[in-house]
Design a protein around this nucleic acid. Sequence first.
DNA 1: AACACTACTTTGCAATACATAGTACTAAAT
DNA 2: ATTTAGTACTATGTATTGCAAAGTAGTGTT
Lengths: 114, 114
Amino acid sequence: MSSNLENAQAQMRKGVLEFCILSILSRNEVYPSDIIAEMKASRLIVVEGTLYPLLTRLKNAGLLQYRWEESKSGPPRKYYSLTVEGREFLHALQLTWNELVEAVNLTTKSETQS
Amino acid sequence: MSSNLENAQAQMRKGVLEFCILSILSRNEVYPSDIIAEMKASRLIVVEGTLYPLLTRLKNAGLLQYRWEESKSGPPRKYYSLTVEGREFLHALQLTWNELVEAVNLTTKSETQS
DNA sequence: AACACTACTTTGCAATACATAGTACTAAAT
DNA sequence: ATTTAGTACTATGTATTGCAAAGTAGTGTT
């Protein structure tokens, strides 16, 4: 059983997961392990069991596409990239994120005033 | 059926829900309708069916306390406030939020570099 | 007494992150 | 050539939790 704090912190991270993954894909065509590495470098942990189904979901929604590529060190990899629709989607999420940051700052930093 | 975009946007907001509610309670002793009004003013929507169970959960976790207060215009109200433990919890969440904003900015704004 | 308004509670559902286990391909070791 | 290790992708079950919707109850007005 995990603590309340860990739960709440995880909740926060969950909210931006999709957004971050799409952002990473908007810069590079990468395969899942690359994404995990990049997110870990930014202190945003993702694990396989989360990422693979999420990528499939985004692909089925028409936001992502992939191509197979051979690998020297194992089975072939799925290299993902954004579709046109995916780019529009990402743009909308970026706006939402900016608004959210502003809203949270309002809520958490404003003083009582009558 | 709601769109993918609405889903993703809602996910983002969910992540900060607990944090914002605790923040509001750290400034004022308020009852649930006050919280709903404040969050709506900051463009963060919460509805009764979400808020009431959440407050109960936080209270059971020892982060909140409440006292009953009579109302002129209806049934008595539960006025909530943070416990000492709740304040510590909120402080930890504030740190997490700051780190998250930084991490997201890293992930979404950094350019490809080799 | 009936109705409206406000406040709080409960129930069931849907979305989804995660742990875990499983499949499959490649390369190296024996 | 078969086994073993490493990598990549897939599938399944569970727990959390936000929300819609329906229900209960107190107060004041008509």
